[in-house]
Write a protein that binds this DNA or RNA. Sequence first.
DNA 1: ACTCCAGGCGCC
DNA 2: AAACGGCGCCTGGAGT
Length: 717
Amino acid sequence: MQTPIGSSPPPVAVDLETHLIAPGLLAPPPVCGSMCNNAGPLLTTPADVADLVRQSELVIGANIAFDMGVLVAHGLLSLEEAFRAYDEGRIHDILLGQALDAIAKGHLFKDPRDGGNLRDPATGKQVGRYSLAVCSDLALGLATAKENDLYRTRYALLEGKPHHEWPELARQYPRDDARNTYDVALVQYGGSFDVTGLHPEAYDNLHDMPRQARAAWALHLASMWGYRTDPKRVEALAARIEREHDAALASFVPVGFIRPDGTEDTSAVKKAAAKAYGAGGTCKVCNGRGKVPSPKTGNPVACKEGCDGTGLDLSTAPSLPRTEKGAVSASRDTLMESGDEVLERYAMVSENDKLRATYVPFLRQGLKWPVNPRPNTLVESGRTSYSDPTQTMPRGNGVRECIVPRPGSVFCSIDYSAVELCTLAQACIHLVGKSRMAELINETGDPGSLHTAFAASMVGVPLRELKARVKAKDPAAVGYRQAAKAANFGFPGGMGASTLVLAKRKRIEGVTKSPDGEVEYAGIRFCLLIGGATRCGDEKVTEWKGKAIPPACKRCLECAEDLRSQWFLQWPEMKEYFDFVAYRVDTYGFITQIASNRVRGGVTFTSAANGYFQSLAADGAKGALYAVTRECYLDKKSPMYGARPIFFNHDEIFSEMPLSIASDAAKRMAEVMVREMRVVVPDVTVAAEPALMWRWSKDAATVYDLGGKLVPDPKTL
DNA sequence: ACTCCAGGCGCC
DNA sequence: AAACGGCGCCTGGAGT
């Protein structure tokens, strides 16, 4: 893996200047390269940069996956050579280095000097991620890293001209970038690039760099491929949403919730909500006007102290749900539970508005060019994120269905089955030495059996019997299993009973029916599922265990408390797990992630309780993404050679592949995903199921033809 | 016109 | 003792 000292060029920072990134073009043509090693910076050619990537013992860059993508796309570096550099752990991305260290210290995406948000040192503006400029500022105290950037966006103009004819500024900028990148990396390494081991003063978590760099490369390749949207579907969706929007205007402009200009009058909505929860009288602070002069500007602003702009005496409505900071809640749940018919109808508007504002514009980007989503390789939990809605596409309303494969290809989605239950079980084995969950998953090969098993315990029948009753759609058995599932997914993160009740009733899809079938309630209602109640919410309380809560069904709360006690009996490891987490958090304040040994600082009880299994799943899935991508791009003998991952969704790899190879490719991809997850989850069975589809859909199922060939789910046509 | 924050909500 | 988490986008309101 490591090249002997002396036989390869020393660590070097590299950078490319390219034509501009454009829609559908994430790897524009390179114009020049720059490099910096211990001898200083040099302006050079893209081909020279490729040579350095081939040979250097350590190749340093800022968002270097971009440069690698450019070199590969323009034939200067082969895919084999690019992957080899990652395989050998020779790629160091200073942006990831900065993030890894910040995660250890608990200040990711914060400026450790003042605790505030990250800012670009040149503009002073807040930024959401690390950049060369930000890293230069943080690591070097250099606030002027990008001062010679006149040509930053103009290198296309210099294409074909010899370097000596370039203006001095155009020659200076790439050298500055390479030098700053090199200097930042040197600080990250603790002052010397030691190939025999990390320097004692090196940044924290640097050992995780090779894995994160590989993930970044795979994510970047996926984004380069991109995805398209279907014009007919997008416009049909947009038209439907516009119609609903117009209908909302017609309904709610007259009542004042929406102004004639289309914006929402949030104070009017809050006022109606407050009234619905029983508020009356007049706010003593603003005398009912809802506005007070701003102490700073004198402008009329919402009366925050008294009534949050409602003009009402809120002390007359103790049950009125409030936000974290004490404002009047206007959330969908608040409106839905208000008992006011107009507010209940208005609650539905927010869903349509979100589609209209966020998802339709995003889908429209894919009409003309492929969407190249913008991944962020590493966040605090070890997961990924995207600077766009890629990971938050709604499952309903026909949104995902707008995304379609290129002609001749199909989509393939493979996700792990309940992987966080598997990683939780693994975490318990690792941290407290035992896991009943692991035993059951391994016996049955199915994490879903945890729900059935817990339900069976509650009902007091053998697992097999409850399974049969669920299969026969016995409503009581199904209800117990639903409650068990909610418990298994909610409680491991440290959730309390009241939060579970409130969270589960908020769900927009799915209803719970009263036993007589006459009333439908939104979401899950524990009193009906396991409490023997005939109606939910006959008695409501606004306080639970000494804590104020929005009005909630008392019986539901009692049932959830009972569920939680039984859950601890069902999984004896969980008490010890929580004890361990509390000890870690109280004693050390940081946790060390299992398998990766990545340190995460600044944790709370709940973030740590979640963090162990969430991070383990993330690390395993990222490893799988790299292995899958490698085989798709590189391994000509693999059944999935030629398939293309498009995006990554925590526990899911979504790819596009020619129909002709899809069956074998998908099966192979699922195998590799399981194999790679098992690297970090060695003691628990893991499963991943492929589904092929003609367009993206949450509903797509695994479908085989009579010959055992995996075929696209016909539902998705 | 721009910036920032809180609230809300989409996903896993 | 008790405690779900982590993401990013959009809006409105308020300040500069």
